[in-house]
Amino acid sequence: MSTHVMTLLNLSGKTALITGGSRGLGLQLAESLGEAGARIVITSRKAPDLEDAAAALTSRGIDAQWIAGDAARPDQVEYVCTEALNRLKQIDILVNNAGASWGAPAESHPIEAWDKVMNLNIRSIFLFSQAIGRASMIPNKHGRIINVASIAGLGGNRAGIETVAYNTSKGALVNFTRALAAEWGEHGITVNAIAPGFFPSKMADGLLQQLGIDNLAAQTPLRRIGDEDDLKGIALLLASSAGKHITGQIIPVDGGMSCAMG
């Protein structure tokens, strides 16, 4: 007999570390995994934001802790991973969500801004994955890594959007996901990426105002942008036993915008 689907989706007894987990998409992903039974550690730079987010998660019956650290700094990535492992003993699920963007024409894009985006959006993801893989997932022969990419990593931009570093970093994350999945599959580790379309968030709000939410929705097959529930189902699938045979995949969650553009 096959396993009951609700058993496959149950994360009771599992642990998860979510970067950029204090707000926006990261907090939505933390809610999803915590509501399914996982013990959660969220991390980001600002302790007050983390404290508020952990309290909100706890109010939903989720076992949630927080650790402050700057994902752009290798020493702080190491600290967060070590502290999370000390508290949880092992990490079953790693959600690499921390990220940044920068708007500037390519011909005048500051090199410091390029480095900031690359260090947070791709280097930190390599460092978190390496640390957690080496210390927990590879020895345990089990793990789920979920990277938060973007439909911006699947192609170029429409006229008027000048985010060359962000697009480049998310494109790199797409192939990082595929390469790591191929390399770590033998250890029982799945590596996948979610590619969100337009969602309200602090990072995206300026662009949403520039482009217009109603205008974006009109260009999307489902005639809407993402909301506070739209990443929860795919995150749970990829984190749980229900997704144990899915790896190396990039899954857009964008109301169909990427297929319409393609």
Rank of each mutant, 00 (worst) to 15 (best):
V5S: 13
L8E: 03
A16S: 14
T19F: 00
T19W: 05
S22K: 06
L27V: 01
L29N: 10
E31M: 10
G34M: 05
E35N: 09
T43S: 12
S44N: 04
R45G: 08
D52P: 02
A53L: 04
D63S: 07
Q65A: 10
Y79I: 06
V80P: 02
E83D: 01
E83H: 11
A84N: 03
L88V: 08
L94H: 02
N96D: 09
N97G: 03
W102R: 06
H109Q: 11
H109C: 06
P110K: 06
V117W: 11
L120S: 05
S124W: 03
S129P: 05
A131D: 02
S136A: 14
M137E: 02
N140V: 10
N147F: 05
V148F: 09
V148M: 13
S150F: 13
A152R: 12
N157Y: 14
G160Y: 10
N167H: 15
N167D: 09
L173A: 06
N175V: 07
N175C: 07
E183R: 06
W184Q: 11
T190C: 12
A195I: 09
P200I: 05
M203L: 14
A204T: 12
A204R: 11
D205C: 13
L216C: 13
T220D: 07
P221F: 14
L222N: 09
R224W: 09
E228A: 14
D229P: 05
K232Q: 07
L237P: 00
A242S: 06
K244F: 14
H245V: 07
H245W: 15
I250H: 01
I251G: 01
S258H: 04
